[in-house]
């Protein structure tokens, strides 16, 4: 445990002595800014313990009205926790596989683009960057047609592959940064030892790319986890729904019990936040490792 901690110590990078005035001022500013960013989390949780009247009128910002025993705990009781966990699981599967596919594809492409010298690698690299420019809304119908012809409609594939494709360009962009950081001498030495391109990639590059994994993962995660349009269009079967489209089941046409929606979102968000906090050291560490090159 202790050893693990030593592997990342932010203070070692820092200048030890800045002026005390600076420290106080920046700490105060940071506390104010952090409070602004922490408030939504607090608000989300209190929101889940109110009824519509409190949410829209009588207790909009703070704690629910009355003593804790009068808070609308019913919202959690009314919640089909089992369904939410199922949606969570589906989201996790889809997101994980999409990230995995896009990461593998991106690292392989990045290897060919950054470590093998050939004529059109610059052009191909630029071409991949086109991917971050495409608005998802415009691709709904074409992707539907493609997915239908491949028999993917109402299966997880209809989400996994498009999500992977839409995170591909960003993954390549990040991957390239890490890739240039690995000294070329390593490849050369391996070739002299008789390694093939594939051998170099799998034995040398992939292990060294591990710090890139969490950086790519977190950016792709943000793209896939909250996606609603593809999810609600391509998936009809309840058992396959992802979180965003599953939670939409709680929004009625004319009347919505917002407290219930809040409870569902809270149940769905808390695990994400816990995972993030648990992983944040690792994430931040890998961010730093890959940063310079972007």
């Amino acid at each position: 445990m202790a050893k693990k901690k030593d592997s990342f110590n932010p203070d070692q990078y820092a200048i030890q002595k800045s002026s005390p005035v600076f420290r106080v001022v920046s700490t105060v500013l940071l506390i104010i800014w952090s409070a602004l960013n922490l408030y939504p989390l607090f608000w989300m949780i209190t929101f889940s313990l109110k009824d519509n009247m409190q949410i829209t009128k009588t207790a909009m910002y703070g704690l629910p009205k009355g003593a804790p025993s009068e808070w609308i705990w019913k919202n959690y009781k009314d919640l089909q926790i089992k369904d939410i966990l199922m949606y969570f699981k589906n989201s996790a599967i889809v997101t994980f596989l999409a990230i995995l596919i896009s990461m593998i594809a991106a690292m392989m492409a990045s290897y060919a683009l950054m470590r093998i010298k050939w004529k059109f690698r610059g052009a191909i690299n630029k071409m991949f960057m086109l991917g971050i420019t495409i608005p998802v809304q415009a691709s709904l119908v074409p992707v539907f047609i493609i997915a239908k012809n491949l028999g993917w409609i109402d299966t997880r594939m209809a989400l996994i592959i498009p999500y992977a494709a839409f995170s591909l360009s960003m993954s390549i962009l990040i991957s390239n940064g890490f890739m240039t950081n690995i000294p070329m001498d390593l490849d050369e030495a391996a070739y002299i030892d008789g390694c093939s391109r594939y051998g170099v990639f799998f034995r040398i590059i992939v292990p060294l790319m591990l710090p890139a994994v969490s950086t790519i993962a977190i950016y792709s995660f943000l793209q896939c986890w909250n996606e609603l349009m593809f999810a609600s269009t391509f998936i009809s079967t309840k058992e396959l729904r992802t979180l965003p489209s599953g939670l939409r089941q709680l929004t009625g046409t004319y009347t919505t019990n917002f407290g219930l929606v809040g409870a569902a979102i809270t149940v769905a968000t808390i695990p994400t936040i816990i995972i993030y906090i648990l992983l944040s050291r690792k994430i931040q560490e890998s961010f730093i490792a890959g940063a310079v090159k972007g």
Binding site: I101, S102, I104, A105, A106, M108, A109, Y111, A112, L113, I116, W118, I124, M127, F128, L130, G131, I134, A138, S139, V141, P142, V143, I146, I161, P162, A164, A165, F166, L168, S169, I172, S196, R197, Y198, F201
Partner: peptide, 20 residues
């Protein structure tokens, strides 16, 4: 090997992004 390494990305890119 360039082709092999680029193939997965190209399939994703052309199949899902370029076609639309």
């Amino acid at each position: 090997s360039i082709i092999v390494f680029l193939l997965p990305a190209l399939i994703l890119f052309f199949g899902i992004l370029v076609l639309p």
